[in-house]
Amino acid sequence: MTAMTTPDLAGPGGHHDVSEARKLAMWAFLGSEVLLFGSLITTFLLYRTRVGDGPSAAEIFDIPFTSISSFILLMSSLTMVLGHHSWERKDWRQMRVWLLATAGLGMIFLAGQVFEFTEFVHEGLTVSTSPFGSAFFVLTGFHGLHVAVGVMMLMATAIMGFTGKLREDGGMNVGLVGLYWHFVDVVWIVIFTVVYLLAV
């Protein structure tokens, strides 16, 4: 019975801790996202060798390039956590710097992905070349979409930091954005291995 008991987060008078609730909700949402990316990755695993007449993964991937962009995304987790740290210490100036740095790294990653996609299309791999192409573009594209949303959230948070709205709220915006951002990074860790490295 105790297996399901959880800390009673409700305060007296029903004044629950809003920031705790939001963090909890974010974790639940991320749990759901695991299944979303799981489905996409499963589709990819099923189709990774079905290349038809189109280029195969080994022929087309540029592993050194992707390794660098993966590394950049990985390091954005570091800047994110440092931003989170300064937010906790209420060091708004540093926080803004780190958040913008994170957003910048995210945008570099996205630019790399755009470049990569363009290259692939030139080399003859599009969404309708083969099931491999469909699965690859939809999986990485979906991840890219998540990164883009994350960049927007980071920018919005940083801007709110400038205008002072963040401080008034006292919620946990940076905490939430951080969770989301790290999750997107974690997904890329899996994609990098499953999609790219296994194809070498």
Partner: peptide, 9 residues
């Protein structure tokens, strides 16, 4: 895309 297109794999 070709996710469910048997003719193309």
């Amino acid at each position: 895309t070709l996710f469910f297109d048997a003719a193309n794999g």
